[in-house]
Design a protein around this nucleic acid. Structure first.
Lengths: 209, 209
DNA sequence: AATAATATTGAACGATGTTCAAGGTTCCTG
DNA sequence: CAGGAACCTTGAACATCGTTCAATATTATT
């Protein structure tokens, strides 16, 4: 029993790794089951013993990408002990850099759409939630008056805004912007957002008095 | 000569309209040439007399979507004569509302990727540039000290940030957020960004003295 | 009206994801 | 250790795409 399952797991790992490399090199649309099968040395049909369908395969690669992204953001947060404000800037820049360095894999996270009717499995959804965690902590330090729910919403908004800048900035479709310029823009806008949010907080508190 | 070309143009218009409706109903992935041909009453192969390939078809639909979006933003800008700051908020909300009401068509604008090697035609690129124009004017009023280039960059950053909030907010993948909540978040963050940018401007000017 | 030019057709091609019966391996049991 | 049960692997076959093209039908010109 061990022999068969062992080989299966080995092949599975190889499959996911091959898929990761293929997406990284040729984009999500360049992922082909026949190429994958040739790569890991098995028949085309055998892929479906290792994985239910390509949707699952893409999700598994996405999970790995999210994990690496998470590690990157963790590293960015722990570098030195800057103010919460600068911590958020660092996180945003780390996100941008990760996207630039893992462009195709990062795009695959957002480009992929499940075939209609099939819903994303729990383990995949759970992975995605973890990302906001990094933003949450500095935000909580900056806005001690806000409830956890409010902080969660603000965290998601901030994340989304930075994501949008990276997404459109790294896109060739709209004007291509050089990476250093994009980093500078993100830095400026994150600082502006935070300062603006702080100012509103003060105003709100004053009005509440 | 007129008879043939006339029919051709009629069919072309019908094709693009059918494609638009099909994308709106079933998403970009639901666009099938055979269904389109049946819809407009011609053979599958005839589609390629009206259009070079589906890429062009998608781009043509995108052009129409961008045009409607442009009209929507124009309307939002001209409604009343609010301050530049509130004008920007209105534009952002109009963008969000348009995305929500034209979800699939709006997604198609960003989901579509040309097959590698083929580049987007000029007329399509030109369409996309026009969007920043709406943001540019209020920004110029708010930041008279900035150069046109700087304003253009800020406009794109602001647009990208709002786009990101709409994109992730309207996505089912990350937590689904109700539209009113999303609008409120966008309003808050746009105001914060602008106020933050203004504060930085003042600080920068003071430091320059 | 005859002929040249052009448009339209739908069958066929090559890819692609997915399935499945046939045949091979591996594992448990007597 | 032998033999059967359970499982795995295979590669051919299927359905569905976008796209092409020789044959046919239509339109325009002389």
């Amino acid at each position: 029993m061990t022999k068969a399952l062992e080989r299966r797991e080995k092949l599975r790992a190889a499959l996911i790794q091959a898929a990761e490399q293929m997406i990284a090199e040729r984009g999500l649309a360049g992922l082909k089951t026949r190429d994958l099968a040739r790569e890991i040395g098995c028949a085309n049909g055998a892929v479906y013993n290792l994985v239910a369908d390509v949707d699952e395969l893409i999700l598994r690669v996405g999970s790995r990408t999210l994990l690496r992204l998470d590690e990157t953001l963790t590293l960015a947060t722990n570098a030195g002990e800057p103010s919460p404000r600068e911590s958020l800037v660092r996180i945003a820049l780390a996100y941008c850099d990760f996207a630039a360095e893992n462009l195709q894999l990062w795009r695959a996270l957002f480009e992929h759409r499940m075939e209609t009717g099939k819903l994303v499995p729990d383990w995949s959804v759970h992975d995605q939630m973890q990302l906001f965690r990094h933003i949450y902590q500095p935000l909580a330090a900056l806005f001690p008056g806000r409830s956890p729910e409010e902080l969660g919403i603000t965290a998601r908004s901030l994340f989304s805004a930075v994501h949008g800048m990276a997404a459109l900035g790294l896109e060739r479709k709209l004007v291509a912007v050089p990476l250093p310029a994009l980093r500078k823009e993100i830095t400026g806008l994150v600082r502006a957002m935070i300062d603006g949010l702080i100012a509103h907080d003060v105003k709100g508190a004053a009005a509440a008095d």
